[in-house]
Design a protein around this nucleic acid. Structure first.
Length: 586
RNA sequence: CGGGGCGUAGCUUAGCCUGGUAGAGCGCCUGGUUUGGGACCAGGAGGUCGCAGGUUCGAAUCCUGCCGCCCCGACCA
């Protein structure tokens, strides 16, 4: 039992000016966190209690899924990263540290980085410690602070520079066993989110800079989420838009025959799809070929899409470049012979085709058959361009952004789209890290093999905020039982009455014995203030002890989720409260 | 990092355009009246107006630079 007057819950009537979304406002207003700087937050006592509860449930479920807890340093020798496979891709999000020195000369020390994730630490550890198939599988995890120099921290704990994450790393003898480990973690995640009272759905996801073959993200549906989930309820298909597929291009599609010889026509000043759509040319966007130029590891490559489609940039990750970015007009012209707006991939029109690392076409351009594209001559386009006859395509792929309404790839029904917050991610990594660091084992035939890895993350602090985003009303937070900082609030309206406080202590003991954490509001505040604060901090059960009720011989019991107030005769109060707690505690 | 916005008391903010003693509400302190959904009255403390330059007799206000924060984009748990 905690007495409010001896605890620290600084609630606010007004929302801080820098908070935009409900959960961020409530985090601050309910006295859970305070901001230190952009993306940096202090967990106040109430917030810390929630973090601990989420952390503990996470630990229990990961343990149940076979995880072994350890803790690695937050400070990493940069050397570990330089040796790894993604130093160049990941260094931009890392904080580098050194000694503050004596202020007189530049410190000369090994370079350190603050850990954004721990593959670069765990893999060398496992390499050194595990060498036999007899010691596999192993799945190590920790729940610890991570540091990422987010370009734009946002929405309170939602995207912070310093945040708490559960990160796990599995090591298996082969692919089949790695998939089993992956499956166990997926089940553990589902159990975790269920227990903390959060709806999180597993969706297919892009692997990003982590690499690896496949992955799922766990998404909490929310309007303010950063990600779009493409899904269909009937089929159960769900994917991050970055990864989503659709059956837009029918499997049996036959390629259109040419309609005539390609023909150049003048389009002075027309450099956008929309402009070519307008009169006098009137070429529909879905009859145009859009030609984009990217730089992949220093070499230009082309991506061709339908004019009506958007590029889904994440999908270019499948092309195998370590780093890629859009090319600048200065880079484009010498290769293509024209500036953006008049580009095309028709054979023979590209000025310097040898410079290209490839021409990658989205499969949907096959729906065009014969269309219009840039002539690689400023102010000119080509018509009657046939996909198979004319375009210098290296490879077809899926590069377009899927839109709601397109057919589900599994059942053909229309796909839907909604926003979500990514709270967890699981990756099947393969041998990318184990090969790089030499983490290998010897099998029973004395053969050496790289271990097959998986890695898994849950954003604990982000999940905390996602809980609030998903569970609040106009008055404040509505905590799910399992993660509430306290489950029972005893509101003593007349704390100056000794019999009121005595009763509060008695009821607190009853609730605690039944399995609840109890907060007693013993402040010398007016009832209105106490009720407003009670709703704001959102504890699941509220017991009200007032002078009036005591004269009547009752106390009141109210759930945060309900408007109904139960009047409990004093003689029954302890048992009734204990029952109410047991029902919810399960 | 590109685009936009904002920095005034612990919090929310007015004042800035059109330069001339920095104001309110909440919170805090004292006293009193109150006491079942953010009370009222009286008194009080609290501000180098983000920082540094500049223009001016005079700058919160105009100009320049920097810093910080928020929003949109690319990245992520």
């Amino acid at each position: 039992m905690k007495l409010w007057s001896q605890f620290f819950i600084p609630t606010l009537k007004e929302s801080p000016a820098d908070a935009e979304i409900a959960s961020h406002k409530l985090l601050v207003r309910a006295g859970l966190v305070r901001k230190l700087g952009g993306g940096l937050y202090t967990y106040l006592p109430l917030g810390l209690r929630v973090m601990r509860k989420i952390t503990q449930i996470c630990r229990e479920e990961i343990d149940r899924g076979g995880g072994i807890e350890l803790e690695m340093p937050h400070l990493h020798p940069a050397e570990n990263w330089v040796q790894g496979p993604r130093w160049s891709a990941a260094r931009e999000i890392m904080f580098r540290t050194d000694s503050a020195g004596d202020g007189k000369r530049a410190p000369r020390e090994p370079e350190f980085v603050l850990g954004p994730t721990h593959e670069e630490v765990i893999t060398p550890l496992v390499k050194a410690e595990i060498t036999s198939y007899r010691d596999l599988p192993k799945n190590f995890y920790q729940i610890a602070t991570k540091f990422r120099n987010e370009i734009r921290p946002r929405y309170g704990l939602m995207r912070a520079r310093e945040f708490v994450m559960m990160d796990a790393y599995s090591f298996d003898v082969d692919d089949a066993h790695a998939i089993a480990s992956y499956g166990k973690m997926k089940a553990a995640y589902e159990a975790f989110f269920r227990r903390i009272g959060v709806t999180a759905i597993a969706v297919e996801a892009d692997t990003g800079v982590m690499g690896g073959s496949h992955s799922h993200e766990f998404m909490v549906p929310a309007e303010i989420g950063d990600d779009d989930v493409i899904y269909n309820e009937a089929s159960g298909y769900a994917a991050n838009r970055e990864k989503a597929r659709s059956a837009l291009v029918p499997a049996g599609l036959t390629d259109a025959a040419p309609t005539g010889a390609t023909e150049e026509f003048a389009t002075p000043g027309i450099v956008t799809i929309a402009a070519l759509e307008a009169a006098p040319h009137a070429v529909p966007a879905d009859n145009q070929f859009k030609t984009l130029v990217f730089m992949g590891d220093g070499k230009p490559f082309l991506v061709i899409l339908r004019g009506s489609d958007e590029l889904e940039e994440a999908k270019l990750g499948s092309l195998g470049f370590t780093l890629f970015r859009a090319a600048t007009p200065e880079e484009i012209e010498p290769v293509m012979g024209a500036r953006p707006g008049s580009l095309g991939a028709v054979r023979g029109t590209i000025k310097n085709p040898g410079a290209l690392a490839g021409v990658f076409a989205d499969a949907a351009i096959r729906l065009i058959g014969n269309g219009v594209t840039g002539a690689n001559r400023d102010g000119f386009h080509l018509r009657h361009v046939n996909v198979t006859r004319d375009l210098a395509i290296t490879k077809f792929g899926d590069f377009r952004r899927v839109r709601a309404g397109e057919p589900d790839p599994t059942n053909g029904q229309p796909l839907q789209s909604r926003r979500g917050i990514e709270v967890g991610h699981i990756f099947k990594l393969g041998t990318k890290y184990s090969e790089k660091y030499g983490a290998a084992y010897t099998d029973d035939q004395k053969q050496s093999h790289p271990m097959v890895m998986g890695c898994y993350g849950i954003g604990i602090s982000r999940t905390l905020q996602a809980v609030i985003e998903q569970s609040h009303d106009a008055d404040g937070i509505v905590w799910p039982w399992a993660v509430a900082p306290f489950q029972v609030l005893i509101c003593v309206l007349d704390p100056q009455l000794p019999e009121a406080m005595e009763l509060a202590r008695k009821l607190a003991v009853a609730a605690e014995t039944a399995g609840a954490d109890v907060l007693v509001d013993d402040r010398a505040e007016r009832p209105g203030v106490k009720f407003k604060d009670a709703d704001l901090i959102g504890l699941p059960l509220r017991i009200t002890i007032g002078g009036k009720g005591l004269k009547e011989g009752i106390v009141e019991l109210k759930a945060r989720t309900s408007k109904d107030v139960l009047k409990l005769p004093l003689a029954e109060a302890e048992t009734r409260i204990a029952d109410a707690v047991r029902v919810r505690a399960g």
